[in-house]
Nucleic acid binder design. Structure first.
Length: 360
DNA sequence: TTCATGACCTC
DNA sequence: CCTTGTGTCATGAA
């Protein structure tokens, strides 16, 4: 079962302030370059019906909604959404044999045992979940149920918001085969184009393609994945995600620059933020990366690794500053538009009690 | 094998 | 007109 919380950030805002419920709500990530620079994170369905969607520039959303005087534009309040998410995830976990939170607003539940494999029982569990989330948090969600994670996710996409779609094993092939390959998790614009060039349009087309050919074109992992997912034989288990692999912060500069003083101070802020978050979760790092988006929107990454893990803020700043000055030299005249710091090769530190310490 | 990097994807 | 954050994989060099 895949549970997807509907238009999550915007719905959180509706819950905080129910008066907004009959207005178009647009939750925005403001970049600070100019008053309305930035992009739309999420919006409610009233805004969607007018043509607003995730990812478009805020200024374009304002254009689209210029005749809706009731439109509301809000900045993201991640802490608040996180609190609601955590409470809901705890409720959902209670319905599952195994639980996997995929993002702030999505979770997979293995319900094989609790339902004894019955899709009818699964369907009524889904309705119960929807009732409970409404009662406890006033939140709607959309649920997909299927024999595997990939199909459950596609199923949830069929009817939303507040929807429920069940794909039973006997309908699996018929459900999947007519769908466009772009419905598959992992097929974005680029991959879709490559598949189209191979005359592979539907998931059925993909299922009929020899796995050797897919591996040839897309590599081992993706090729095998496409083959099993399209044939409904993707059997990856639902499993709790452990510590993150990496943690990063990124900022957009007020204006493009290559002033090392300025860049350095931004990097220090990002480093402080990262360090705090590492402390809270008891993580140590071994690799520091700098990600830069230049004025021409090209991006590049540079990284350095230590011999052993550490949690020292001084080390983050020192490495990050070394990398950024090298990087400025490398790109000679180009200015920087955005800069980010990433810590990776993470481990849970000693002294912090956790299951992972006992495993290793 | 490990490291560094870019491409791509998702939300 | 162009945000933020997390993750996977392929590739080539060390």
């Amino acid at each position: 079962m895949l549970v997807d919380l509907d238009y999550f950030y915007a719905q959180c805002e509706e819950i905080r302030n129910p008066e907004l419920k009959n207005k178009p709500i647009v939750v925005c990530v403001y970049s600070g370059r100019s008053s309305d620079s930035g992009a739309v994170s999420t919006c409610n369905y009233i805004a969607r019906h007018e043509g607003v969607k995730s990812g478009i520039p805020i200024i374009l959303a304002k254009q689209i909604l210029k005749n809706r005087e009731d439109a509301v534009f809000l900045p993201t309040d991640h802490e608040y959404y996180e609190q609601i998410s955590q409470r809901i995830m705890n409720i959902l976990r209670g319905y599952s044999d195994a639980f996997e939170q995929a993002s702030i607003d999505e979770a997979y539940l293995d319900i094989s045992k609790t339902t004894g494999g019955s899709f009818n029982i699964a369907e009524s569990s889904a309705l119960k979940i929807q009732e409970e989330l409404m009662r406890a948090e006033k939140m709607t969600c959309t649920i997909g149920i299927a024999p595997d994670k990939i199909t459950a996710k596609i199923a949830a996409d069929i009817k939303k918001p507040n929807g429920l779609t069940v794909v039973r094993p006997e309908n699996l092939q018929n459900f999947l085969s007519p769908l466009p390959v772009s419905k598959l998790h992992g097929v974005g614009v680029k991959t879709n184009k490559r598949l189209t060039e191979l005359n592979i349009h539907s998931i059925g087309d993909l299922a009929r393609t020899r796995v050797e050919k897919l591996v040839d074109v897309f590599g081992k992992k993706l090729g095998v994945y496409f083959y099993s997912a399209s044939n409904g034989t993707y059997h990856e288990p639902v499993q709790e995600r452990d510590n993150p692999e990496q943690i990063s912060r990124i900022a957009t500069l007020k204006e493009d620059s290559r002033d090392i003083q300025l860049l350095s101070s931004i990097i220090n802020d990002l480093s402080n933020d990262l360090h705090q978050s590492m402390q809270e979760s008891g993580l140590w790092f071994r690799t520091v990366s700098i990600n830069a988006v230049l004025e021409d929107l090209s991006t590049l990454t540079r990284s350095k690794s230590l011999e052993s893990h550490t949690s020292e803020i001084k080390v983050i700043k020192k490495m990050a500053n070394m990398i950024i000055s090298d990087l400025l030299n490398e790109v000679d005249q180009k200015k920087v538009r955005r800069v980010g710091v990433k810590l990776s090769e993470l481990i849970k530190n000693r002294g912090q009690t956790s299951i992972s310490n006992f495993i290793s």
